[in-house]
Design a protein around this nucleic acid. Structure first.
Length: 581
DNA sequence: GCTCCTTTGAAGCTT
DNA sequence: AAGCTTCAAAGGAGC
């Protein structure tokens, strides 16, 4: 179980967790200094405790302090994995002689990565894993597994993934730990069965029913893997190395000098790799690439998303056939390497199923609105987890595709209605001043749609979440930003009480306030404990400076800080889009 | 069958 | 440097 002391001084994670820790600490210190009260800390402790208890209460006996103590019984069928596990552990020990193997990562409130045990239950047993989670489930274990045919089978099984993605998954909200999204990452491997994975040597794949080698729980995919350690363990992706000699995916040229080298990433990154692995992907055997055949979920078959003739001329991470065949062919052979998911996207993937389950909404646009609000309602810690996850994903992505640039994907999508947007942009002032499409009143959901049931704000009246206590009183700016709400403009009423701005919210906005000349800034609806400071549409991710931000390059921090200030002056809006139409 | 919608964040591009 | 644009996921809606 993660330690409550915020990572015990921050030793530990090599991959940014440390900086996260620092950042958190900094924030905490800042708060303490400014507030000078222990209230925030108390709240934080409560949160921590609740998180701890929550995870412990799931009763998987796994919440014990040292997961290392939970040595799974040696079983013949685990011999192989055990062996590798030993290597793994040994390597890790070497990396962290202080025994920080399972040190709680920087997140004070129980970084979910380590809350493995909890996971097993509610989600898998009911088959209620979110699509994403299922994907993770499918792919992650194999990543850490000794290359096994079973694992390979898992991956190659005819696409349960895509199918399941279409299936509305019902999760149990009550069991939904706030950290569930991430928990599922690390837990999907637990079979829906009776016992935790670490107790059962063989796990039936939840979808395929194919027995798989269980992973010792201490082999959390999120344990940091140092480059040195990596060399001693099987390639996390080796399961995908085509045993029949065919790589499933091509690898960007220069992506791997050594098949394992680039995988000098921690296991969490491996999970990231697996997380987005898409069965859609088709083999690209003919790229003259190494046979590592490392698939990344970001790689998508050209056939999936590719617009003929829109291939960017940018640097492609994929080696093109030396023979300059028809350009089209080359383009077709280029796998589409997707952008790494950002924090919100990761969050969205995890939470979508839950929102869908709780709401009658079906439209993704509406759900995304809810998710957007939920995102803002997340505490810093919670968001930080996703920022960290996203950061790792980007890191992994950059390692997998060193030459890849976001630019490469430019133009691969059908161009959106830029005209409209531009028109919106130009019409913004008019729209704002003339205002405004009548807003649909936000009706408090009978059953919480998980979107903050406030009329306008997640943080505003979300029940005094710890985050609120944590984040704010001390830092006016932060408080302000955290209370800021996205100006989601929903034109359709929905059953699920979409987070539509109340009329008051929208009408009280720019035109009637000093901020009238500031698109995107509007006055908040007064509500208990809310401020009367102007509301900003999309500030939080930047302005609240998620702890992870502090682990970003200084330039980014500067940018974030800058944005934080700048956002008070002007805020771009997507809000007008609908209105303009 | 394709595109849009809708969200936030990251990165690239433009001014 | 600041602002804008594009893309990432998702899936129903609309054309």
């Amino acid at each position: 179980m993660p330690q409550l002391n915020g990572g015990g001084g921050g030793a530990g994670d090599e991959l940014g967790a440390k900086d996260e820790l620092i950042s958190f600490k900094d924030e905490g210190e800042q708060e303490e200094k400014s507030v000078g009260s222990t209230a925030a800390r108390t709240d934080l402790d409560e949160v921590k405790s609740s998180l701890v208890n929550e995870s412990e209460n799931h009763g998987c006996s796994s919440s014990s302090d040292s997961e290392t103590d939970r040595q799974p019984q040696n079983r013949p069928d685990l011999e192989s994995s055990d062996k590798h596990r030993d290597h793994f552990a040994e390597a890790l020990r070497r990396q962290q002689p202080d025994g920080g193997l399972f040190r709680a990562p920087s997140y004070p409130a129980g970084y979910p990565f380590l809350v493995l045990p909890e996971l097993a239950g509610p989600y898998l047993s009911s088959g209620a894993l979110s699509p994403t989670a299922r994907t993770y489930l499918q792919m992650k274990w194999p990543l850490l597994d000794v290359p096994s045919t079973a694992a390979l089978k898992d991956a190659r099984l005819p696409s349960p993934g895509p199918l399941s993605n279409k299936i509305p998954v019902v999760q149990h909200p009550h069991h939904m730990h706030p950290l569930t999204p991430l928990i599922t990452y690390s837990n999907e491997h637990f079979s829906p069965g009776t016992s935790p994975a670490h107790l059962s040597p063989e796990i039936l794949d939840s979808k395929t029913g194919i027995p798989r080698t269980a992973h010792p729980s201490e082999l959390s995919p999120y344990y940091p893997l140092s480059p040195g350690a990596v060399g001693q363990i099987p390639h996390p992706l080796s399961w995908l190395v085509p045993q029949q000699g065919q790589p499933m995916y091509s690898i960007p040229a220069g992506g791997f000098r050594h098949p394992y080298q680039t995988l000098a990433m921690n296991a969490s990154m491996s999970s990231l790799v697996s997380s987005r692995f898409s069965p859609h992907v088709v083999p690209h055997p003919a790229h003259g690439l190494q046979h590592t055949g490392i698939p990344h979920p970001a790689i998508v078959s050209p056939s999936i998303k590719q617009e003929p003739g829109t291939e960017s001329a940018g640097t492609s991470p994929v080696v093109q056939p030396k023979s300059p065949g028809p350009l089209k062919k080359e383009e077709e052979k280029k796998p589409h390497i997707k952008k790494p998911l950002n924090a919100f996207m990761l969050y969205m993937k995890e939470m979508r199923a839950k929102v869908v389950a709780e709401c009658t909404l079906k439209e993704s646009a509406a759900i995304n609105q809810i998710l957007g609000r939920k995102w803002h309602s997340l505490s810093r810690e919670e968001q930080a987890k996703y920022y960290e996850l996203a950061r790792k994903e980007r890191q992994l992505h950059s390692q997998l595709y060193p030459g890849w640039s976001a630019r490469d994907n430019y133009g691969k999508r059908k161009k959106r209605k830029r005209d409209n947007k531009q028109a919106d942009s130009t019409l913004r002032d008019n729209i704002l001043s003339q205002s405004k499409k009548p807003c649909i009143p936000y009706l408090p959901p009978e059953k919480t749609c998980d979107s903050p049931s406030s009329s306008h704000g997640s943080m505003l009246d979300s029940p005094a979440t710890p985050s609120t206590a944590l984040a704010s009183p001390a830092a006016p700016a932060a408080t302000h930003s955290e209370q800021a709400q996205p100006l989601s403009l929903t034109t359709k009423p929905t059953h699920c009480s979409l987070p539509v701005k109340t009329s008051g919210f929208s009408t009280s906005g720019p035109s009637s306030s000093p901020a009238s000349s500031q698109p995107g800034v509007s006055l908040p609806i007064s509500s208990p404990g809310t401020q009367t400071t102007p509301h900003i549409s999309r500030p939080i991710s930047f302005t609240s400076l998620p702890p992870s931000v502090l682990s970003f390059p200084a330039s980014f921090q500067k940018a974030a800080i800058h944005s934080h200030h700048a956002i008070l002056q002007s805020q771009p809006l997507s809000l007008v889009t609908k209105s303009a139409e």
